[in-house]
Design a protein around this nucleic acid. Sequence first.
DNA 1: CAGTTTAAGTCAGCCTTGTTGACATTCCAA
DNA 2: TTGGAATGTCAACAAGGCTGACTTAAACTG
Lengths: 170, 170
Amino acid sequence: MDDGRATTTRGGENLLFLTDEQLRQGIEAMFFAYRGFTADPDRILSDMAYGRAHHRAIHFINRAPGTTVNNLLNILGVTKQSLNRVLRTLIEDGLVQSRVGTSDKRERHLFLTEDGRALEGRLSDAQRARMRTAFRDAGPEAVAGFRTVLEAMMDTEMHRTYQRLKESGA
Amino acid sequence: MDDGRATTTRGGENLLFLTDEQLRQGIEAMFFAYRGFTADPDRILSDMAYGRAHHRAIHFINRAPGTTVNNLLNILGVTKQSLNRVLRTLIEDGLVQSRVGTSDKRERHLFLTEDGRALEGRLSDAQRARMRTAFRDAGPEAVAGFRTVLEAMMDTEMHRTYQRLKESGA
DNA sequence: CAGTTTAAGTCAGCCTTGTTGACATTCCAA
DNA sequence: TTGGAATGTCAACAAGGCTGACTTAAACTG
């Protein structure tokens, strides 16, 4: 254990923003906020035979249409067996379409179908609504801080993945 | 779906901080950051017969020593059967002690043993180290924004629980 | 005091989602 | 043509959620 005190070079104000107590509060805030973050989509999904894993797959396929299975694997950080179980049900249920690659026919390119986009919309509308309210209540400066801290919290590899996705966005 | 545009009353700067693209980036940042957030304790726990659920129980028992089972249930938001499975192993392994209540003998008050505190220390050191680095790199203003947004993201009930814990801290 | 409610614990069974390991298929590239 | 890469599949398992049913003991209440 350390003494919980840390200094800032920023001239004295907020000298104690790195005490163990502050860090603990940050940890607990993360725990509770993540529950809120997933609560709305979870509620929608609990009515169907789907779970959070399906939501994640749908989100990132929508995000990067035509992505390969391997690419999705890296983004999600799970095994191919785990992802495959999820993808199989989504394909069977007609929410995702898997197309053999043109340049490399070993690869499968993944797309959402009409139905898939419809579900994606329902899920992300709910999640965005919460995020929007939180962002609006907190204000632009807080949002900037929020994202700065989150980015610093990622592993290097995740951070690269996140940046790549971010830059590929509008 | 909405048009993704939102106005801010703050005079024009950052007019677009509530576009769907910004919200999506916030959602993805949350996803990746939470993985980083849990990665270090997960690594430690994977060597033992414990998982994230044990970590959470240990964290909050350490946080509020003498808490009752029911109270812990409300904080963690799981069923008593789920929590009981975790608590039973922790008690059997001598990391947690359960004492019959004095005023109300139906209640059990939970405490970490010496060994329990030792494990708690290992786990939270790892998690705090990451949080500390992230906080230090981001700076005090970003940290304030981070916590403002996270609090706004919680459900009302969670937020109350979080506030109560926060105020009971040093 | 009798009856009800509450706190905790337990048993059984189910689901989702992660894991390993083994193995088949297809196809690119050296 | 052969090795390796990408994908898919099968089986088995574990963690950690869930529901439902039930017990015990203590506390509360009419």
